[in-house]
Design a protein around this nucleic acid. Structure first.
Length: 116
DNA sequence: CGCCTGACTGTTG
DNA sequence: CCAACAGCCAGGC
């Protein structure tokens, strides 16, 4: 699988995430058969732009702990992701440190590979 | 070929 | 809950 196929696989999988559900980078990696490529899932997602077509609901992908990883300077990206999730009706918790996280117990989506 | 980086993860104390 | 560590691997230099 080359880089382009990897990206495509990640995008396809992310589009499978139901509304009001979120999952983790690591799980996306497992679903596409590459359990050790969690970092590259993030790399594939950052390659996306608001104009990407068809659209990919990347905001439904967070770290394994449910926290939204801050990328780049400040919390701009994480804030936008949190807003996008809230806009869809997902419960987003904001800690005292301003860190955004989602409640996996309520909206976690972790199907076993092969069952999707 | 080696070294560093990163939208990561799991274990340990 | 948080910090430190140790794996992980493609991509840029």
């Amino acid at each position: 699988m080359d880089s382009a196929e990897f990206h495509a696989a990640v995008y396809e999988t992310v589009r499978l995430i139901p509304v009001l559900k979120v999952t983790s980078y690591g799980h996306i990696a497992k679903l596409i058969g590459m359990p050790n490529h969690s970092r590259h899932v993030g790399q594939a997602l950052k390659f996306l732009t608001p104009d990407t077509n068809p659209p990919v609901p990347w905001h439904r992908v967070v770290s394994s702990s449910g926290a939204i990883s801050s990328r780049g300077p400040g919390t701009a990206g994480a804030r936008l992701q949190g807003d996008a999730l809230e806009a869809e009706g997902v419960e987003v918790t904001v800690t005292a440190a301003g860190e955004r996280r989602v409640n996996f117990a309520v909206c976690g989506w972790f199907p076993e590979p092969g069952t999707v």
